[in-house]
Design a protein around this nucleic acid. Structure first.
Lengths: 196, 196
DNA sequence: TCGTTCACATACCGGGGGTATGTTAGCGTC
DNA sequence: GACGCTAACATACCCCCGGTATGTGAACGA
């Protein structure tokens, strides 16, 4: 089968992205060598630079991909709930569960802030994940379930709490660590609920 | 004045530590070149390797130093309060305020987890900061102010929330962002308080 | 005083990110 | 359908920088 040029290009790019994602998740950004990613895909380093301007550029693309997937997964889980409050809880729990994926942990939570810089990381995180959290909180405020207040500081606190907890859970052997964390999170969230 | 050999060694080490701290805070781990740190102190790269086994080793020492200072500062602020609940609040607020220091942000919160690995970072963070948080929460549980529960997941959630919020505050121009964050934090904490 | 130690300097190596320069195959154009 | 252009690759190279191996002179103990 003969491929058109555009198809070939797209296929190579996809392959680099997939291989990069595998290695970044496994070894961490620093220990991944760009040329090896290229060769693993059957392409030389020089060729890989036609698709990504730098090693960080490849990483950035991988981050965007993983972010996107995570955001959608969490949002989908949350949307399965009808009650607004349960939506918030479900979203948070889905995020904690997503930390089981090494790609999420190593790439998004550990390496991304350093490699891309915290500001850029935050912007991407905002667009993909925290935005949903902000929306959910805003809905709750509108519904009168949560007291009127600026919602972004709250979202930042919760986002940080979830990130850290997800990392912690991944390295904590205890069977019930997840359940305990979810319970602790519920207690914190309860502080937001006007009538509880 | 002539220095003894031990004095000379200690002085060089201190100077490397100070210069490293400055640069790590300013430029981030990756953009700091080890040889330049050495030369800025009036010493060659080879000499610097007599004091620190690697660039990461220097960074590790800097992290320990900053961690130590931060932990002490936060604990001192908290201990100024008599009431256990106010102690917790004061400690959290002191931590948020500490995020104003670029060294804390860039070195401790952004770079340390990647450079040292998340596990080692966590161990150091535990020893210097989170331990105080765990103690404060445990005291509150003992006093019956906070419901009986495993205290570590809670501490992890709070630690993550504070880390993220500290970073966010540093880049958020709004005058009242700090006040809003403190208020949001109070609401979350309120969920822990049995009689509120 | 003399040998040893140790805090440094000097010189070198090699990995790896990034670039400059071919080369060949697909694509539009006449 | 030949021809020139473009673009997706390969090849070869640079050089920065972390790390190491080796030299040197001054302080220290005996």
């Amino acid at each position: 089968m003969v491929l058109t040029r555009a198809e070939q290009r797209a296929a190579t790019r996809r392959a680099l992205l997939a291989e990069g994602r595998r290695r970044f998740a496994e070894d961490g950004y620093h220990d991944v060598v760009f040329a090896e990613v290229a060769h693993a895909v059957g392409v030389t380093k020089g060729a890989a630079y036609h698709h990504f301007d730098s090693k960080a550029g490849l990483f950035r693309a991988v981050v965007a991909e993983v972010q996107q997937e995570l955001g959608e997964r969490v949002a989908a889980t949350a949307d399965r709930q009808d009650d607004l409050w349960e939506r918030l809880r479900a979203g948070c729990r889905a995020f904690l569960a997503a930390g089981a994926d090494p790609a999420v942990r190593r790439i998004l939570l550990v390496d991304a802030p350093t490699v891309l810089g915290w500001q850029e990381w935050r912007a991407m995180d905002d667009a993909a994940s925290v935005r949903h959290l902000v929306d959910a909180l805003a809905d709750l405020v509108d519904a009168g379930v949560v007291a009127e207040q600026p919602v972004e500081p709250l979202a930042r606190l919760l986002s940080g709490a979830l990130n850290e907890a997800a990392l912690w859970l991944a390295e904590t052997p205890g069977r019930d660590a997840l359940a305990q964390t979810e319970q602790a999170l519920d207690r914190l969230l309860a502080g937001l609920h006007v009538s509880r």
